[in-house]
Every structure is written in structure tokens, then in C-alpha cells.
Deep mutational scan, measured.
Amino acid sequence: MLEGKVKWFNSEKGFGFIEVEGQDDVFVHFSAIQGEGFKTLEEGQAVSFEIVEGNRGPQAANVTKEA
């Protein structure tokens, strides 16, 4: 699992990017966010995740919000 911070997330469109120190930003789709209820992320929020190869390159999977 990697750790990063949410760079930005558009809850209307359901996607955004996660910043990872020393690496390129990683695309995140709302469907990759773990948990119940409305799936969104806040700018600057700490998250842990895995990287998988998507249709358009690397993207986040199994995203969990850090306490």
C-alpha cells in the first residue's frame, strides 16, 4: 500500500488525483474508494491505496481514508 494526499477531487464528476511524494500524481475514480455511503475525498486528505494499470495508465485502487 502507498500513502498520499488528495490533490483535488471533483465529487460531481467522481474523480480526482492523489499526490505521492517522489512520484507522478495518481488518478482516482470514486468507485475505488472503500467504505459505505457517498464516496468522495477532500483536498489534502491523507489516503492509502494501491496502484493498478487502468485503460489510460496507472490509477488508484482500494483507496482508504486515513484517520
Rank of each mutant, 00 (worst) to 15 (best):
S11T: 13
E36A: 11
L2H: 12
Q34T: 13
E19Q: 15
E42Q: 12
P58K: 12
I18S: 00
K65Y: 14
F38D: 08
G57H: 05
Q23R: 12
V52D: 06
F15A: 03
Q45E: 10
E3W: 15
I18P: 00
E36Q: 10
D24L: 12
H29L: 07
V47G: 00
T40A: 10
K39N: 06
M1C: 05
D25A: 07
V6E: 00
V28H: 00
E21S: 15
K65D: 05
G44S: 06
G37P: 07
G35V: 11
N10S: 13
V6S: 02
I33S: 02
A61S: 11
A67G: 11
D24H: 14
A60K: 01
Q23N: 10
E21Q: 14
Q45G: 07
G4F: 02
F9P: 00
S48T: 12
A46F: 11
E43C: 06
D24V: 13
Q45I: 09
F30D: 02
T40C: 06
G57Q: 05
G16C: 01
K7G: 04
E12I: 11
W8Q: 03
A60T: 02
W8N: 03
N55A: 15
S31I: 05
A61L: 09
P58Y: 10
S48V: 13
G14A: 03
E3T: 15
G35L: 07
P58G: 06
G54M: 09
Q45Y: 07
E19Y: 13
F38L: 09
I51H: 04
Q59W: 09
E42S: 10
A67E: 11
E3I: 15
E66Q: 15
E43H: 15
K65N: 08
A67I: 15
M1R: 14
A61M: 13
E66K: 15
G22T: 06
F17Y: 08
L41I: 06
W8R: 04
K65T: 10
G22R: 07
F9V: 03
G54S: 12
D24W: 11
G44T: 05
V63G: 01
K65I: 14
F30Y: 12
F9H: 01
A67M: 10
K7V: 06
E19D: 07
G4N: 01
V6M: 03
G57I: 04
S11H: 15
G44M: 06
G16F: 01
I51V: 13
E42G: 11
E21D: 13
N62H: 10
E19K: 14
F30P: 01
G4S: 03
E12V: 12
F15W: 15
V47A: 03
E36S: 11
G4E: 01
F49H: 01
L2Q: 10
T40Q: 09
F27C: 02
E3A: 15
V6G: 01
Q23T: 10
G14N: 03
T64N: 12
G35Y: 08
E12G: 10
G14S: 02
F30L: 04
L2G: 09
G14Q: 03
A60Y: 01
W8G: 02
E66M: 15
G57M: 05
N62M: 11
Q59V: 10
V6H: 00
R56Q: 14
V6T: 05
T40W: 10
K39Y: 06
G37K: 07
P58I: 11
F17A: 04
E43A: 14
V47H: 00
I33K: 01
G44R: 08
V26P: 01
N62L: 08
F9A: 02
A32T: 06
R56W: 13
I33D: 01
G14T: 02
W8H: 04
K5E: 04
A60P: 01
G4P: 01
A67H: 13
G16T: 00
F27P: 03
L2Y: 13
A32E: 07
E43S: 15
V28G: 01
G14V: 01
E3C: 06
I18Q: 00
A46N: 13
V28Q: 00
E42M: 11
G44K: 08
H29W: 06
G57Y: 05
Q59F: 10
G14W: 02
